[in-house]
Amino acid sequence: NQASVVANQLIPISTHLTLVMMRSEVVTPVGIPAEDIPRLVSMQVNRAVPLGTTLMPDMVKGYA
């Protein structure tokens, strides 16, 4: 099972991601792979992401 990136807190819209905001967890459905966490740092979310939500490629500007 592959770990995905999950929000560690509420991430407001247009926030630049930091390591503190993300954790890796095995979830269904599978989202952005956990090994991409370093790549996600300083990218922006294009919507509010609630605590515990799996980050999907379409939620992060410039990821997909």
Rank of each mutant, 00 (worst) to 15 (best):
Q9Y: 14
V27Y: 03
P29W: 04
M56I: 10
V5Q: 01
V6Y: 00
I13P: 11
R23F: 04
I11S: 01
L55I: 12
P29S: 04
N1P: 13
E35Q: 09
P12C: 05
G31M: 02
V5D: 01
I37D: 00
Y63F: 10
L10T: 12
R23H: 05
A34R: 05
T18Q: 12
R47L: 09
P29Q: 05
L19T: 10
L55M: 12
V26Q: 11
S42A: 14
P12I: 04
P12L: 06
V26T: 12
S14L: 13
Q2W: 10
A64D: 15
V27W: 03
T53S: 10
Y63N: 04
E35L: 08
I37W: 03
V41M: 07
P33D: 06
T28A: 14
S42Y: 09
G31E: 01
I37G: 03
R23L: 05
Q2L: 10
R23G: 07
D36M: 11
Q44D: 03
N8Y: 03
N8W: 04
V5E: 02
Q44N: 04
S4Y: 04
Q9F: 12
I32S: 02
V20F: 15
G62S: 10
V41E: 05
L55N: 01
N46T: 10
R39K: 15
P57R: 07
T18S: 12
I37V: 07
V60N: 03
N8K: 09
N8T: 11
D36I: 07
I32V: 08
P12W: 04
P38Q: 13
L40W: 03
V26M: 13
V60K: 02
P33A: 14
T15I: 07
S4M: 02
T18H: 05
T28N: 11
R47W: 05
I13G: 09
L10V: 11
P12M: 05
S42K: 13
A3I: 07
I32N: 01
A48H: 11
I37F: 01
T54R: 02
L51T: 13
R47C: 09
D36A: 13
S42L: 07
V41D: 03
E25Y: 06
V49P: 02
D58R: 07
L40A: 00
T54S: 04
D36W: 07
D58S: 11
P38V: 09
I11F: 01
D36L: 09
M22C: 03
K61H: 15
D36E: 13
T15R: 06
N46P: 02
V45P: 01
S4A: 02
P50R: 09
T53Q: 10
T18I: 05
V41F: 04
N1V: 15
A64E: 14
M21D: 04
D58G: 12
P38E: 09
I13S: 14
A48K: 13
M56G: 04
M43F: 08
Q9I: 11
N46A: 09
Y63M: 05
M43Y: 06
L55Q: 00
L51I: 12
M21L: 05
S4E: 01
T28S: 13
M21V: 03
Y63E: 04
V20T: 13
A7K: 02
Q44W: 05
V26D: 15
D58P: 06
M59D: 13
D36K: 09
A34F: 08
V30N: 11
L17R: 00
G62N: 13
V5H: 01
R39F: 10
T53D: 14
V41P: 01
T28P: 00
K61V: 15
P33R: 09
L51N: 13
I32Y: 01
D36H: 13
P38H: 15
N46S: 14
I37P: 02
P57Q: 07
T53I: 10
L17P: 03
E25G: 12
S42F: 13
T15F: 07
S24D: 07
V27F: 03
G31N: 01
D58W: 10
I32T: 01
